[in-house]
Amino acid sequence: MKRAIFILFFLSFSCVPTEYKYFVRTYNELQNINWERNILNYLPLSDDIVYESTVIRRTVSLLQTQSFSKLKVYLSQQQEKDSDFYFAQTLYLMAKADYSNAWLSLEAVDKNKYEPIQSLISIDLTYELNKKRGFNDYVRILDSYQTLLDNYPNDNALRNIIALRTRYIRYN
């Protein structure tokens, strides 16, 4: 009996779902988002990025259905470890809230290959890793988001996304 209670107790903790904070969305999908009552962090992907690479396309498709175990297997089966692979792996690790490994994976991606999302993820990871270490320098993070926004003044989706990031930081 005691063992059964212990197992139930253990299971109740092991079944606590991971809090997913970052969500991959294509620019088309972002057009249907309600930005007002929202605090979600979107990772915007242009069609060019999604459709030019099979590994990214498959990753995005599996992330959208939250098929994380399938995606893990799929990524582990990849032979070619190029920028596309590391970028796809970064998206997977971001979605799984494994920020330390996501940072290592992002480092392996060619610089400026997937802008502006690459810079956005870099700032997100800096924020999450700092927060994990108990260090919340939101002023510097906001400055980085502000600079990114100013580098893409005509990207409305990015502006909305960064406004939500500001909200997210404000409430964390």
Partner: peptide
């Protein structure tokens, strides 16, 4: 609580 906002006006 923090006071700040994002400056989203075009430069």
């Amino acid at each position: 609580a923090p006071l700040y906002y994002l400056h989203d006006t075009p430069k």
